[in-house]
């Protein structure tokens, strides 16, 4: 035991006066343990906060009546992505290329709904009606009107939105930012 009133203990040789080594040992390890616990208590929620965001089932967005889409015409339709934050402003505007392919054998309306993001590095592809091609301004990726890769560096065709027809309305599932390993699959 050190006496704090003892003038020799203020400066100098404290270790020599350890009265109860096992107690010291315990206190040291308790401090390590407490420190680790405190770090963990802090770190887990901090990191959890960092890597998480509001995860929600992507809602469906109405793009318009099926009858509004002329057959085999590609059009850019824009909407506000419902996955946005209220303070997102115009950044939440989302464009999507829609092409009505007509009804199939079972009278089901078929659509081609393509993301604007080039599969190469995410730049916005532009639709050219004259040639029926999508071209990317960044590295010159080109896609055919059906979204398949035509030329240039993209590793695959354009990403397809998840879509459905409900009550005569074309609807798409709110899209996240699509990347090569995380395409727009059905998440409903």
């Amino acid at each position: 035991m050190t006496d704090i009133n003892d003038p020799t203990s203020r400066r100098g040789d404290v270790s020599a006066q350890v009265a109860n080594p096992s107690r010291r040992w315990f206190f040291r390890w308790l401090t390590y343990l407490m420190g680790a616990a405190a770090t963990l208590v802090l770190a887990v929620p901090l990191i959890g906060y960092l890597v998480s965001y509001r995860r929600q089932r992507p809602p469906w967005i109405k793009l318009g009546a099926v009858t509004d889409f002329p057959q085999n015409v590609t059009r850019m339709i824009t909407f506000d992505n419902p996955l946005k934050q209220p303070w997102d402003g115009m950044v939440a505007h989302t464009g999507v290329y829609v092409r009505y392919l007509g009804a199939d054998d079972r009278q089901q309306d078929q659509f081609l709904v393509l993301a604007v993001n080039c599969t190469h590095l995410g730049c916005p592809v532009e639709w050219f009606e004259g040639s029926g091609l999508f071209m990317c301004p960044c590295h010159g990726g080109v896609y055919y009107e059906n979204g398949e890769h035509a030329s240039g560096p993209p590793p695959r065709g354009l990403y397809h939105y998840v879509w459905r027809v409900r009550d005569g309305q074309l609807e798409v599932q709110a899209p996240h930012f699509p990347t090569l390993h995380d395409t727009l699959r059905d998440r409903a």
Partner: peptide, 22 residues
């Protein structure tokens, strides 16, 4: 997003959400 395995998770950490936004 091209990182094998963790790509999609890293993208949402980078973007702070599912889309590029606020």
């Amino acid at each position: 997003g091209r990182v094998p395995g963790a790509g999609p998770e890293l993208v949402s950490i980078m973007l702070g959400g599912p889309i590029i936004g606020a």
